[in-house]
Amino acid sequence: CAFTHRPCSHPRLEGQEFCIKHILEDKNAPFKQCSYISTKNGKRCPNAAPKPEKKDGVSFCAEH
């Protein structure tokens, strides 16, 4: 993984420079932040999710 703030030993995603944990660092990657919002604390999930086809579409990470 090419994350520069600290060493990361996670494997890169195929065709990308970053792992799934750090892929949002790459603005050109086909990922965006997960659209899930917790009902308990109102916070948005920080994980990466595939970018949807539509610009305003929602997309969820593997956990959600």
Rank of each mutant, 00 (worst) to 15 (best):
C1Y: 00
C1F: 01
A2I: 05
A2T: 10
A2G: 10
A2E: 01
A2C: 11
F3L: 03
F3N: 03
F3R: 06
T4G: 02
T4I: 09
T4C: 10
T4L: 01
H5I: 11
H5T: 15
H5E: 15
H5G: 15
H5C: 09
R6H: 12
R6N: 08
R6E: 10
R6A: 07
P7F: 09
P7A: 12
P7S: 08
P7V: 10
P7H: 08
P7D: 15
P7M: 13
C8R: 00
C8T: 00
S9A: 14
S9C: 09
S9F: 15
H10F: 11
H10Y: 14
H10Q: 11
H10I: 15
P11Q: 14
P11E: 15
P11H: 04
R12T: 10
R12D: 00
L13M: 13
L13Y: 04
L13F: 03
E14D: 07
E14M: 14
E14S: 07
G15L: 02
G15D: 09
G15E: 05
Q16I: 02
Q16K: 08
Q16Y: 06
Q16V: 02
E17H: 09
E17T: 13
E17S: 10
F18D: 01
F18Q: 01
F18H: 02
F18G: 01
F18T: 02
C19A: 00
C19T: 00
C19K: 01
C19G: 00
I20C: 08
I20N: 03
I20F: 09
I20P: 06
I20Y: 07
K21G: 09
K21S: 09
K21R: 13
H22D: 00
H22V: 00
H22Y: 00
I23P: 01
I23C: 07
L24M: 11
L24E: 04
L24P: 08
E25M: 11
E25Q: 07
E25F: 12
E25L: 10
E25N: 05
D26S: 09
D26Y: 05
D26M: 06
K27G: 06
K27D: 06
N28Q: 12
N28M: 10
N28L: 11
A29D: 05
P30Q: 04
P30S: 08
P30C: 04
P30D: 07
F31V: 04
F31Q: 12
F31A: 05
F31R: 05
F31H: 04
F31K: 06
K32R: 14
K32S: 11
K32E: 14
Q33H: 02
Q33D: 04
Q33M: 12
C34D: 03
C34W: 01
C34P: 03
S35W: 07
S35E: 15
S35L: 08
S35Q: 10
S35C: 15
Y36F: 15
Y36C: 06
I37Y: 08
I37R: 13
I37P: 08
I37E: 14
I37H: 15
S38P: 14
S38C: 14
T39I: 09
T39A: 09
T39W: 01
T39P: 05
K40P: 03
K40M: 01
K40A: 01
N41D: 08
N41V: 14
N41P: 08
N41M: 11
N41T: 05
N41W: 06
G42T: 13
G42V: 10
G42K: 15
G42A: 13
K43L: 10
K43H: 12
K43V: 12
K43A: 09
R44A: 13
R44H: 13
R44M: 14
R44N: 15
R44V: 14
R44G: 14
C45T: 02
C45A: 02
C45I: 01
C45E: 06
P46C: 12
P46S: 13
P46W: 14
N47I: 10
N47A: 15
A48P: 11
A48E: 04
A48K: 06
A48Y: 07
A48D: 04
A48S: 07
A49G: 12
A49C: 07
A49I: 12
A49H: 07
A49W: 03
A49S: 13
A49T: 15
P50G: 05
P50W: 04
P50A: 05
K51W: 06
K51V: 14
K51I: 14
K51F: 05
P52L: 10
P52Q: 12
P52I: 08
P52E: 12
P52F: 15
D56H: 13
D56P: 11
D56T: 13
D56N: 12
G57A: 01
V58S: 11
V58I: 13
V58E: 13
S59L: 14
S59Q: 13
S59W: 15
S59M: 11
S59C: 11
S59E: 04
F60L: 14
C61W: 01
C61S: 02
C61T: 03
A62P: 12
A62N: 10
A62V: 13
E63K: 11
E63D: 15
E63I: 05
E63Y: 08
E63S: 11
H64V: 01
H64N: 02
H64I: 00
H64R: 02
H64C: 13
H64M: 03
